[in-house]
Design a protein around this nucleic acid. Structure first.
Length: 296
DNA sequence: AAAGCGTGGGT
DNA sequence: TACCCAAGCTT
């Protein structure tokens, strides 16, 4: 009896079960899954989806890609246009970083999204997850792609509670150990794992009854205590709330005088603080006459 | 390395 | 009503 590593079975079973399941349940209506989508389109979809539900991203991605199809198009766009187009997706700094990313690709990579994981990781706004997602989903490479869905799925498969914290090297290793050797199969499995977490093995409630790998899962038949959940952040009444209101005001109409910025929040001191930050970060600026507008 | 960064839908 | 959750990244 060979002493196989514990994941040997799963490595064989997962593709056999998950790939057919994915063929049947893959959300092909997500616009970036159309076959003609470029690597840049994939990258944009991933950045927009950072901490934002894909249902809200989809329509915006369509409009964005139609207006600015390539990195060079985004690189040349004006700041106020970028921020207005981004709309209410949230975390507007992502939009500005996406433009920086586009500029780097246009200037240093010949307007082509790099294939190499480290080159991707070096781009503004691209972290470990997004770099892997682009390398795998756009180029079909073999890397662990670990977002909150995959982290949860992999943890549950092995019968452990999801850490609920930021992805660790151990999470990456655990995922990598589940990938088959064949590149194309590994890439397909990576999307399937994420889709399973998104549609079936959900955070609040795992729908084990409709799971294609329920019989090999360490979670399904056990009472796994939930791990410490990620620390939740307040929004109502916080600095972020004020910042959001100010940016929204300027998306609606700009330029505006300071007196109208003060309408964003009843606490003037909080407006002062938030506005100072936004000016410092370049999300807001003043024109020659001292009126406020979205940053260039 | 913990904290900060938007927004909205579901329960 | 609150709270949870959503394809994370940066400093």
């Amino acid at each position: 009896m060979p002493n196989n590593p514990p994941n040997e079975g799963l490595v064989t079973v997962l593709p056999k079960r998950l790939l057919p399941w994915f063929d049947a349940h893959n959300r092909t209506e997500l616009p970036w899954r159309r076959p003609e989508t470029t690597p840049w389109g994939v990258l944009v979809s991933e950045v927009m989806s950072q901490q934002t539900p894909v249902s809200r991203v989809a329509p915006l991605w369509e409009a964005w890609m139609e207006r600015w199809p390539s990195p060079a198009d985004v690189a040349d766009a004006a700041g106020p246009d970028i921020l207005t187009m981004w709309g209410r997706l949230g975390y507007p700094r992502r939009a500005m970083r996406l433009r920086e990313c586009a500029q780097a690709i246009a200037e240093k990579h010949g307007n082509e999204v790099p294939r190499d994981l480290d080159e991707l990781r070096a781009l503004p706004g691209i972290g470990v997850y997004t770099a892997a997602a682009v390398a795998v989903f756009a180029y079909g490479h073999r890397h662990p792609v670990v977002d909150t869905n995959v982290r949860r799925v992999v943890a549950r498969l092995s019968g452990k509670p999801d850490s609920g914290t930021a992805t660790s090297q151990a999470d990456l290793d655990a995922c990598e150990a589940l990938l088959p050797e064949d590149q194309a199969t590994a890439a397909r499995l990576s999307i399937a794992l994420m889709e399973l977490g998104s549609l079936v093995c959900k955070a609040r409630e795992a729908d084990c009854a409709s799971c294609p790998v329920v019989d090999v899962c360490g979670f399904a038949y056990q009472d796994i205590p939930e791990g410490p959940s990620r620390k939740r952040q307040k929004y109502t009444g916080t600095n972020r709330h004020v910042r959001g209101n100010i940016i929204e005001l300027l998306r609606q109409k700009a330029p505006r005088p300071r007196s109208e910025i003060d309408l964003a929040w009843k606490d003037a001191a909080m407006v002062n603080e938030a506005l100072a930050q936004l000016l410092h970060e370049g999300l807001v600026e003043t024109d020659e006459t001292g009126l406020f507008q979205l940053g260039a």
